[in-house]
Design a binder for these strands. Structure first.
Lengths: 195, 195
DNA sequence: CTTGAAACTGAACGATCGTTCTTTTATGTA
DNA sequence: TACATAAAAGAACGATCGTTCAGTTTCAAG
């Protein structure tokens, strides 16, 4: 006989189902997940999960998960604070990297870094840069730019003489675009994955 | 009168709906999305979307989106290749950062980097490190470790004399744990978001 | 033109969805 | 113990889901 679950276990069961199936369970399926024998018992749990922000109701009153339910990572404090106890883990907010990093999906791209011109900015060859197209670069932003027919990653800087593209590598010199300058997009994030 | 949509437009409409509502539309809703007047017309489209890998059917024959539909970013080539034409953009594979970076959600945490001990490895203060708990560190992995009561980020190295923790900063010296060593987890990725 | 295949329409159907209602059980308070 | 409140069980209901079927339209090949 399935024993009584607490909220945390129910959320975990829901999360597992959602990750596995890609959709919310029906009331009948939740009845099974939560160990109830009546669908009506599920309604109460759903109400509480809506109140606590794990679920929300859409336009037609339809159930949908919030990012709090679908997120895959826990955000903790600083490295210096080390790892939390299991209880503290439970408290930590779940977060979605997609949601955190990508603001405008239709205008966002990932590019692979090839050179070492931004090495002193902590951007190494092989890293991925998350680039947002169509954003106006501010002074000091890192941009993907086409200068004189070549695409590169540089700091975008504006001074009295005009626009300057600075590498983050003492081995290279700043560039002042002569013929043409196209700013493809602004680097919003850097992602490095270890194999 | 809504004109005929091609596959790409339908996928885009589905993606928008899924992102907005957090769930798949019903056949009736898809009928509206795709501009049909009969639900039966939707069935054909769904069959084709399943065949092309945008949708899949779960255990009970229920419709679920694939990651190809729900992903939020396009993965392009190298920075040097620059930006693709809209047609090439369309070809690029959509990808989910969550899926790409997080292998075991229940064991993965994000920590904020505080010191500069790994600066030469391209890990700066303020960066986020994606740490996986319970993974056995291999030689050269970056780990979050507690040495003599302090948590730090270091290279994990094993040599004839035992375990050594190396910083990536010439200003600091390698550490040989004296009293205790706890490896909290292995760094699987580094994420830097520009404000 | 005729023919055939595919796509679409429109109506209908059984299944199942989420909700509602009443009854039963569990739990805490005086 | 008695009582009040909340949670869960169990049955029932209308709504809507995805599917099916027969008929129509579209369009390209012969």
């Amino acid at each position: 006989m399935p024993r009584v679950m607490n909220i945390g276990e129910r959320v975990r069961a829901l999360r597992a189902f959602y990750r596995r199936e890609g959709r919310m369970p029906t009331y009948e399926e939740m009845r099974g997940l939560f160990g109830y024998r009546s669908k009506n018992a599920v309604a109460g749990v759903v109400r509480r999960l809506c109140a606590t922000g794990y679920l929300k109701r859409g336009a037609a009153g339809r159930l949908a998960p919030t990012s709090r339910l679908t997120a895959v990572t826990r955000l903790l404090g600083a490295v210096a604070a080390g790892f939390p106890s299991p209880a503290e883990e439970e408290m930590a907010d779940m977060m979605s990297l997609d949601e955190y990093l990508v603001e405008r999906p239709e205008a966002t791209f990932l590019l692979t870094v090839s050179g070492d011109s931004m090495i002193e900015a902590g951007i190494q060859p092989g890293d991925l840069v998350l680039v947002e197209k169509g954003r106006i670069p501010r002074n000091g932003d890192i941009v993907v730019a086409q200068v004189d027919d070549e695409w590169t990653l540089k700091y975008f800087r504006r001074d009295r003489e005009g626009i300057r593209l600075d590498p983050a590598n003492r081995a290279y010199a700043p560039i002042r675009p002569k013929r043409s300058l196209v700013v493809g997009g602004v680097v919003r994030a850097v992602i490095r994955k270890y194999i």
